[in-house]
Design a protein around this nucleic acid. Structure first.
Lengths: 249, 249
DNA sequence: GTTGATTTGAACAAAAATAATCAAAAATAA
DNA sequence: TTATTTTTGATTATTTTTGTTCAAATCAAC
């Protein structure tokens, strides 16, 4: 099997599977990994595939910026919460989305809506890049760990906008102490978003209810609507409602 | 069996099987490998088959479909340019990077440097997210096609910063008309970056030299240093230098 | 950050294929 | 028939391709 034949097989495989790795191709082509790598280099130079570490992928797939959406905890709950939250969004809305993982789960449910999303979350931008949503990215310092934008410039940027709804997440919430966070940056940004939105929706799975983190940054009254999952204790739900929170689950 | 007969059989076999090798044909034609090779050379010269190492194949199968997407063209040149440009960057620098594909090739060469990168390019952010570089993302409207940030907010954002160096790309450059672009947004952003930088580096492969696009947006004097590839015509290089451009290749 | 595992690219060596050379065989011409 | 040209096959040198090894780069997990 010569280069031309291998090349055809590689292109075909990449096109079919979307992504391949080197050992896989070496096995398929009955050749060494080094040869596969050399082939991939040539094909990539011709722009026919996109070279990745360990293999290759379709060029068009590589175009979308791959920001990882981490945190596999409570995915089912988060999806349920996000789906419920998406029902609140109307066509034509301008919404804020913060960089919380629960908020990010909104993406699949809003990608066909005709709305404008203003966010500081890179994964959200990535997920909505190929959608009908108009995107606006908040600028400022990049927080690599959280894959989000923070800092004073971000605050100033937000102050220039106004949204119909803000969808935010927190690290902790309690009746006694209100909203709390693990980082000052997130807290600051959450506050900025809430200030510029007509209606503030807090997306929060029930495991975070009545937990406190080290930084208390806002009273419960910042939130207009609290959307959580069905695991919430009904008595606790009542207590929140009596405290004036519009609670949905 | 003479050449005419062998030729018929070879063409037929190639057409049937798609690809053949020399020993296989030698066996089929009851002749030596040397003769087969001589036949193949003639047929290939006539354009009837595609000659490969070890045999031959159908012409249409060997036809590479190089509708090379813009970002994959001249990759080798772009990398060489980017590598040279990276040498200009010192530790501690604050640099601007625009959303051009040549500029994006800087990423691999700067990921270890201790610098701050301010950019409107999502691919650049993505590539440098796991690096030692401090990142600052320019905010504003997301241009989904170019995977970059544009708009008036982006301009305002840039105006608040200053960088030691700006690395920019253009769609066209000529001595007569200066810098030109295909889109107003890119042009606007490039200008904004250049205005806020101490030193402006234009990264531009030689195929773009002396070409004009529809929107002329700046004179050559905007650029301090032009970095291009070694394919540049030496006479042309002299002309640019006489025009006061610091040209590197 | 630092470590450890993978992946990669460069250098080298081996194998395969090719081109060049030349002599023998075959075809052609005188 | 003999001389000349063409074609063919064998030999050898060169080029191309491939595989192995190893240091460096990169990624991922801590």
């Amino acid at each position: 099997m010569n280069f031309q034949q291998r090349k055809q097989l590689i292109l075909q495989t990449v096109d079919e599977k979307g992504a391949v790795d080197v050992p896989e191709l070496a096995e398929l082509l009955q050749t060494s990994a080094m040869t596969v790598r050399r082939d991939l280099v040539q094909l990539a130079a011709a722009g026919l595939i996109y070279r990745t570490h360990g293999g290759a992928m379709r060029v068009r797939d590589a175009m979308v910026v791959p920001f990882a959406n981490k945190s596999a905890m409570n995915v089912a709950h988060k999806e349920a919460i996000a789906q419920r939250a998406a029902q609140e969004i109307l066509d034509g809305d301008v919404i804020f989305m913060d960089c919380g993982s629960t908020v990010a789960h909104l993406c699949p449910f809003i990608r066909h809506k005709r709305i404008t999303v203003i966010t500081n979350s890179l994964p959200v931008i990535s997920e909505l890049l190929n959608s009908s949503v108009t995107l606006n990215l908040i600028g400022g310092e990049v927080d690599k760990e959280r894959q989000a934008i923070h800092g004073s410039m971000a605050g100033e940027h937000i102050a220039r906008y106004h949204a119909d709804r803000a969808f935010i997440g927190v690290d902790g919430i309690s009746l006694a102490n209100g909203l709390s966070a693990n980082g000052e940056q997130e807290a600051q940004l959450t506050l900025a978003l809430a200030r510029q939105a007509s209606r503030v929706y807090l997306l929060c799975d029930s495991s975070k209810l009545e937990t406190d983190k080290y930084l208390f940054f806002a009273p419960l009254s910042l939130v207009d609507v609290l959307i959580t999952d069905a695991q919430i204790n009904p008595d606790l739900a009542d207590t929140y409602r009596q405290a004036g929170i519009d609670l949905i689950y």
